[in-house]
Design a protein around this nucleic acid. Structure first.
Lengths: 114, 114
DNA sequence: CCGTTAGTTCCGAAATCCCGAACTATGGGA
DNA sequence: TCCCATAGTTCGGGATTTCGGAACTAACGG
């Protein structure tokens, strides 16, 4: 299991962020990480809304979010701890993440759901 | 050729907008329409930056933008006139479009290129 | 060492995207 | 009215991406 790759913020591209968050499941996961500050496991998030996400898909979703520069993941014992890179991303692309999260929140009534 | 479909703003979903703009070519086209107020033809935009976009792809890009609720297209004689629905979209999802356009602009140095 | 839990990788099926070729629609002559 | 040119759309199918089950790896607890 190779050491998880996290791009430097200067290498983060807007299209990767938009692509990552254009999937409602991923947006929901990211919103959860944002609001919780940190999500302690992939499994903790496996049932977003009413849909169960298979764990291979979930693993892939986290990978996409990570490689888009949106989250930082680190192994802690047997589980993964994910936290958002909001401050860094917001410094690079001001207002982008909050506008996206707000858009999902206003559309769905109370946040994106998987 | 069926009458072009434009979604009502209340039916516009954030994921469609993010998906539409997660493609740099489309983002560039949209930025151009935004800044010009109106782009008079698909062909007028066929060479974004240094890449030539084939016209079937271009037609599809416009369709994606249109169905995402980002632009309004109307036939004027033999050509198509496209203008942005910025005001409507911004009313529904405040700050979203400008944050996205700014993100591309700051990353690319001077706006998204196709 | 074995079992359990948490997550990753592999790989084939399904869905999407891309773009050349053929087609449709509109306007301008003659 | 017919023909041509221009502008854009649709079709088709190969390339790419995504999805998810099954098998695998890693860490911890007896």
């Amino acid at each position: 299991m190779r050491p998880l790759f996290h791009p430097a913020m200067e290498d983060v591209q807007p299209e990767a962020i938009l692509h990552a968050l254009s999937d409602p499941s991923r947006a929901a996961i990211f919103a959860k990480i944002m609001s919780a500050g940190c999500v302690e496991a992939c499994a903790a998030v496996s049932a977003m809304g009413d849909r169960v996400i298979p764990k291979s898909s979930l693993s892939n979703h986290f990978k996409v979010l990570r490689e888009a520069g949106l989250i930082r993941s680190e192994r802690h014992g047997v589980e993964m701890r994910n936290h958002s890179r909001w401050a860094e991303v917001d410094a690079r692309f001001p207002g982008l993440l909050s506008a996206i999260i707000n858009a999902y929140a206003s559309e769905g009534g109370n946040g994106p759901r998987g």
